[in-house]
Every structure is written in C-alpha cells, then in structure tokens.
Design a protein around this nucleic acid. Structure first.
Length: 773
RNA sequence: GCGGGGGUGGCGAAACGGUAGACGCGGGGGACUUAAAAUCCCCUCCGGGAAACCGGGUGCGGGUUCGAAUCCCGCCCCCCGCACCA
C-alpha cells in the first residue's frame, strides 16, 4: 500500500479504497498458502503537514503524533491485515537517519551535486517548489502564482538513469497507463546537435563563436532561415550588436520578470533581434540571430535553428517578424513551389526539396544523410535528449530531514560522517519560513555552527531540508528491517521480502513517486545494497472515487468520512461496498443508498450460516453453482476484478437461500471462505460458529472441481441470419447436428429458417447461427 | 495542442467477436403483519401486440464479419495528466 500522509482530517476514503483493494489481494494470497507481509507507515514530513501546522499555530512535532494516532485507530477499524510491529514514520530520527544515509551514498558517488538554478518560488509558502509542484504556473498547495529565483540547490542526477528508467518499463508488470506516463515524462528524443558559426564583422565565420543547437529535424537544416537563443543564453552578451544592446537588455529583463503563468498563457511569440548573424552550415547563408522566450534554457542547448517552414512555433514567430519562410520538405502532391500557409510538420510520405543534393530523399533518409554529411565536417553529432531533468531535493523549509552536509571555508561541502547520523531536526519554536529564501534552521546558529568533519575548524551545517519525496522513495525497503537500528535494511530480510510483489496506488503518483523510487532503488542496487533494481514487481493504479456523481472536496462538503460509515454499517459492509461500487482500477461513484445492497448480502450470508444444517447430502444443483462460483471468484480476485467477484457471491447466496430454504453446511462453508478477504470480521466469526478452532485465514482457499463446475445443461442461443430467434436447452457437450435438430423442432425457429441452410455457424455451448442467404 | 481513460436502462455497473443490461440501488406489485419496519417472492430498456411474437436499441456516421458494445476508418462529447521540449 502506498503509505498515507497522516492529515489532520483523518483517513480519506480514497486511502481506504486503495488499502482495502490491496488487503483483499493480500488476504487472498494468504488463503492460497503464501506468507504475506502487509505493512504500513506514515509519510509525515513535508509541506502538507508544515502548512497545516502553521495554519493552526501548533508545532508539527506535537501535531503529527496525534494525527498518526488517529490514523492508526482508523486503520485498525478498517480490518486491514497489517503487521503493526513493522510500521515506519518518516519523521522518526531512527527512520530519517537512513534517509540521510541514502543522501550520503548518492553524494559519495557523484549522484548528488549542488548548483545554482532557477527555481520556482512560491511567495506565499515562501519556499522553492519542485517543477512537479507547480500546476499551470501556480503553487500546487496554495494556488499562488509562482515566481523565479536563483538559489544554490542540491540535485540528484536522475538524468543519468534516464535510459535505464525507460528501458525497464518494457518488462515490469505495471499498469500500461502508468508506464506511458513515465515514458512521456522521460521524453526521449533522437536528434542531432548542429554547430552554427557566428558571422564575424566581415561576414565570415567567427573562429571561436559557435552556437550549438539541438534538433530532431536535422533534415530541415536547409530551411533554417534564422536562429533563436533563450534570453538567458550565455552567448547573448558577446554577440549582441551595439545598436541592439538596449532592446536586448530590455527584453531579457522583461523575460526574467515574467513568471511561468504569463509565459504560458501569453503564447504569442515575441523576441528581439540581436544584430548578429550566424552561418547556416548547410547553405552558408547568413541568417539573423534572435532571442525569444519561446526557447527554453532548460531543454537542449537553449538555442535553436529556426525552420519556419516546418515548425509551427518558428512559423508563427517568422510571421510576426517578417522573417523568410522556406519550404524544404514536400508532402504528397506538393513540390518545392507549393506555398506554405502553415508549417508543414508531417514526416511520413514527405521528401526533401530545396536541399541541394539531398532533394528527393525521404525525411528518415535525410535525417541520417545530412547528419553524417555535417558530422564529417565536424559540424554535427547525433544526440539523444531527455526531458527528464535532475531532481532538486533542497527545500528551504523546516519540516523535513536536514541534508547531512557541513560547509567549511577551507574544505568545501563535507558529508556528515555516517557515525554522526542522524542529524536531528531541532525542536525550535519558530518554524515559520521567511522572505530570506533560507530555511528557518538558518536562524539557529546554535544548531548549524559545528566543526568541519574534515579539518575541525568552524563549519556550518546545510540548513535546507530534503524533499519529502525522498522520505517516501525507500520506505518499502525499511519495513522488514524497521526494528533494526544498526542497518537501513537487513540483507537477509531484504532478500526474503523484497522487491514488493504487489503495489497499489493512485495514478497521481505515476511519475513522481514511482519514478524517483525506481531511481533510488537502482542506485542502491548499483552500490551493492539490493539484489533487484526495480522496486515494485507489479503495480496497479486504482481508480478515483467520486461521490454522487461529483468530485469529493472539502469545499463541496461531500467528503466521505470513513468513521461515520463504519459506525453505521460496519467495517465489512463498508469495505465490501467500496469494492463493489465499480471496477477497482477505474474507481466509481460512491452512493450512500447503495451500501444497503451489500449489507443485505452480508446479512443473508449470516442467515445462511445460522440456519444451515448437516443432514444428508447437499443439493447437487447448488453444489454445481458453488463450484462455478469458486472458479469465478478465484479468477476475479487476482485480476482485481472485485466488483464482479462480489456479484458472483451475491448470486450464489441468492441461490443458497432461495425463499425460505435452509442450506446445507457444505454449501455455505466455502462461501464464508470466499467472502473472508472482503469481510474479514464477519467471516472469522462465522467460521468459529461453524465449529472451527483456527483462523479462517489459515483454512486455505476452497478448491473447485472442474467437473462439478461444468454446466450439465446449457442454453444455446439460436440465430437465423444473425438474428436471435430463440434458445434451446441441450446437454453441454451436444454437437452441431444435435443442436440444429433440436433448434429446427422449435416452430418459431423453423418458421424463420424457411429454405435450406447455406451455412451453419456453431459455437459449442453458446450459439448456433443458421445462415440461409 | 499532446498523452491516457471513458461515453451501455431512472442510477452504479456486467458482457473470451456469439442471447446486451449479470449483480446491486431505486421503482412497481404481492406474501407475512392489527399496522409499519425488517424479511421473502414476482416484475422493471423502448415501441407494437391480449398473447405468441415482431421491430428498435450500447455517443454520431461509415466499414469488416454469418454475427460488432467489443475490431477498423472518420467525427462529437466528458474526465485525468502534461503542456512553447526544438
């Protein structure tokens, strides 16, 4: 189970939906004879908790234990098969000691580094946000518009793992939608870096000044009629002409002020000419160099060759500024002279034109040919780019594990020696962030002033804490070893229990949590700590629960509070209803009225057991239905098709207790076992009442007899020319001739057949189609 | 704009290319009861018909097939991500 963030509001029904789904799977596996370890923990550090603490004016160190106690109480009521001896709490120094240890492992292996970077700054939360925490230019938490600031930050080099993170997606057993989201996030693209010389004052190539661009369309280089640099590009200063300097400075200042919101909303392409020119390496033409904020410093090289004929953005920009548009690719029915009224970006079926000796090549051929041609002259090299950027883990906040680094004027950034871990987060009364852009810890010299571990002279602790995501990227590794203070994870226990065999969670974590967890696991694997490199063998994303057709939210006041429902209906009814309201992987609509149906089902089950007898033999027809039900439920649960499994059991209980019928004990016992993963309390009680001494969860899963599960008599649909004209009931292994004979003896069917059948389609046990036309 | 998931009765939803609507909610009728609740039984896609049956029906328009909710092509709408990524 993805461990929850213990909010002050208490357990959310969405949490319980996910947990119950995984619990059923776990209990089912246990009934199948497997040893199942179902742990849970609390993801209690981070900005959620801290902001809430600030709002209510209570220190998180006091607040969080209360929330955890409340969550624990709620989780216990939900009847989850959790081993409470092995919980983790990310805010416990015995836990974050190892979070800091992981940071040190990355640091020592060159995977954690510091750089000054433009970061998203939320003026309300007064902190840096990860790109992922910026939702359409606004802070994910408070909705405030995000600004840019430049700060020294710690980064994890996840980009070094891009290719592996992508490749492994081909074999891990995850929801396809999640894999796709990760592929898109990694954003691999193949292209080339091309070198454009800047033209000197004499118009000839400048001997040193070169602009490198990244492009996925090297085939269009003959159509590059201008270049664009990102406003922040370092080369701008050295190439800008005197008469354009003023305009360029003005534009750059405006771009720097411009936050992400306006940059995104105002999609109109603006820019300014630098007064400088570059040489197109393919045509030797002199082309103007512009700066524009539609080119991003963060991607590629921060510079592009603009091909307005074949790129929509370049086209729009060229039109705005009257720059030349040249066709170098022609699609079917087009030629070199076909005018361009918009950018032609299709690649399939298109061929090159206006490209010298490359004319006539397909786009694919030309990409390779032109890259090679330029490469021979040292002007190009093939490059693979990723959108995945390094993970910024620094947070200028209080409520997180301090980053275990000590700065020394003489020795630089020094890791805290492992034996000195944990670096304990001090209990300071004023944990409010301020405008300084520094963590509240930076106000506490008594905490940060420490000797340099290397030279012993005065040093200063890193006062930033790490991203709460880091806490949650390894917690599953900690569970089996949660009782060990001398190791992050015991090798024997790790080998026994990990990787996680079944992981279930929301798709909102499809990229962040699941990507970072894979990265951390790969790193620990490479460092020899783990025997596997993928943390979750199987991952399934569960669906979203809505309420009476609308999204649940506090402002709407339609949030389902699990306590109230458990109080009224019981945990088992609540669990079973959550699983019944829709397909687990799609979610569904929580309707108060509908719980009663599930409750009635469980009541009928109760009555069936209460009234059952052991006289004589069970009813053969009921037993056949039972074996079919065992088969169906046993097939549905591993597929997480819980709603149909429950429907099958409802159907069966309706057969068993049809009317006032008193069922035979043999008819109900396996049903109790089948229900137990869904309604564990009830099932355990009924099992005891049936005279068993052991827990029902040690009783094993009922086994169906394939012979009994087979239907003796089946109803076969009879179609004439594809239209249903009746049904016939025959022995389940009846052949085509027999079914046809029986069918034709039905007057209504015979009436429709009229002439001689031209053809007969027969699906044994299901359908007969007589074709006469 | 790109990616993912959807669109089926009054509602939540079922349906290896093979009887569309299982199961459940709601609704209608009945049994039990002095009565109500609870429980149990029957009915419940639409139109025609006394019935047997007949016709229509899975967002829209085409196609493939003996047969399409399901596969293919072209649209429309909803939800969730991502978003100037060169």
């Amino acid at each position: 189970m993805m461990f929850p963030y213990p909010s002050a509001e208490g357990l959310h029904v969405g949490n319980l939906f996910a947990f119950t789904g995984n619990d059923i799977y776990g209990r089912f596996q246990r009934l199948q004879g497997h040893t199942v370890f179902e742990p849970i923990g609390f993801d209690a550090f981070g900005i959620h908790s801290e902001n809430y603490a600030l709002k209510v004016g209570e220190h998180p160190m006091r607040l969080i234990p209360r929330n955890i106690a409340n969550f624990t109480r709620q989780l216990r009521r939900a009847g989850l098969m959790i081993d409470w001896r092995y919980t983790v709490d990310t805010t416990d120094p015995r836990y974050y000691k190892w979070t800091q240890w992981i940071f040190l492992q990355l640091f020592k292996n060159g995977l954690a580094y510091r750089k000054k970077a433009a970061v998203n700054w939320c003026p309300s939360c007064k902190t840096v946000l990860a790109n992922e925490q910026v939702v359409t230019g606004a802070c994910e938490r408070c909705g405030t518009r995000v600004e840019q600031r430049y700060l020294e930050q710690w980064f994890f080099r996840i980009s070094a793992y891009a290719e592996r993170l992508l490749r492994n997606l081909d074999w891990i057993d995850w929801s396809e939608s999640t894999k796709t989201a990760q592929r898109n996030w990694i954003g691999r693209s193949e292209g080339a870096e091309l070198r454009f010389a800047v033209a000197g004052s004499d118009g000839r190539p400048h001997p040193e000044r070169v602009i490198t661009v990244y492009t996925t369309r090297p085939d269009t280089v003959f159509g590059a009629t201008y270049m664009v640099l990102a406003p922040e590009h370092p080369l701008v200063d050295s190439i800008v002409s005197e008469d354009q300097r003023g305009a360029v400075e003005e534009y750059r200042a405006a771009a720097a002020r411009r936050d992400i919101v306006t940059r995104r909303v105002a999609r109109d392409k603006t820019g300014v000419f630098t007064g400088a020119y570059a040489i197109n390496p393919a045509t030797d033409a002199r082309i103007p160099i512009w700066i524009a904020d539609y080119v991003l410093m963060e991607y590629g090289t921060g510079a592009i060759m603009a091909v307005p004929g074949h790129d929509a953005r370049d086209f729009e920009f060229a039109r705005n500024y009257g720059l030349p548009v040249l066709r170098v690719v022609a699609g079917p029915g087009q030629d070199a002279a076909t005018p361009l009224i918009e950018a032609y970006t299709e690649e399939d079926g298109a061929r090159l034109v206006n490209s010298g000796r490359f004319d006539g090549l397909t786009v694919t051929e030309a990409k390779a040919a032109i890259t090679t041609w330029l490469e021979e002259r040292g002007l190009a090299k093939p490059v693979v780019q990723y959108r995945l950027h390094d993970w910024c883990i620094s947070r200028q906040r209080y409520w997180g594990p301090p980053i275990p680094i000590i700065y020394c004027d003489a020795c630089g950034a020094q890791p805290v020696p492992e034996q000195d871990l944990p670096v304990v987060l001090p209990d300071i009364p004023d944990f409010r962030p301020d405008e300084s852009g520094l963590s509240p810890l930076a106000r506490h010299a008594e905490w940060y002033k420490v000797p340099c571990p290397n030279c012993g002279r005065e040093g200063r602790r890193e006062t930033d804490v790490s991203d709460t995501f880091l806490d949650s990227e390894w917690y599953f590794l900690r569970y089996p070893s949660a009782h060990r203070d001398d190791l992050p994870f015991d090798p024997i226990l790790t080998r026994r229990w990990l990787p996680v065999s079944s992981y279930i969670g929301g798709n909102e974590h499809a990229v962040l949590h699941l990507m970072y967890a894979r990265f951390i696991t790969m790193v620990l694997h490479d460092l020899g700590y783990l025997h596997f490199e993928e943390p979750f063998q199987r991952f399934r994303a569960h669906g979203l629960i809505i309420r009476e057709g609308a999204k649940m939210s506090k402002s709407r006041g339609n949030v389902v509070v699990p306590d109230e429902y458990i109080e009224r209906w019981g945990a088992d009814s609540f669990r079973t209803y959550l699983m019944f309201l829709g397909p687990f992987e799609e979610g569904g609509d929580f309707r108060d009225q509908s719980i009663s149906g599930v409750r009635r089902f469980l009541d009928r089950l109760w009555m069936a057991v209460a009234e059952c007898h052991a006289d004589g033999e069970p009813d053969p027809g009921v037993m056949r239905k039972l074996h079919r039900t065992i088969r169906k439920v046993g097939e549905d649960i591993p597929r997480l098709s819980y709603n149909t499994a429950i429907a099958a059991m409802m159907e069966y209980v309706n057969v068993v207790r049809k009317g006032e019928r008193r069922p035979h004990r043999a008819e109900v016992e396996p049903l109790v076992q089948m229900v137990s993963p869904f309604a564990p309390h009830l099932a355990e009680e009924l099992w005891e009442r049936l005279g068993h001494r052991q827990s029902i969860f040690d009783s094993g899963w009922p086994v169906y007899d394939p012979e009994l599960a087979r239907e003796e008599q089946v109803e076969v649909a009879v179609q004439v020319n594809g239209r249903l004209r009746g049904t016939v009931t025959v022995d389940s292994n009846a052949d085509e001739a027999l079914v046809l004979a029986v069918a034709l003896s039905d007057p209504n069917i015979a009436r429709h057949v009229a002439g001689t059948p031209k053809r007969v389609v027969f699906v044994p046990g299901r359908l007969l189609n007589v074709v006469t036309t």
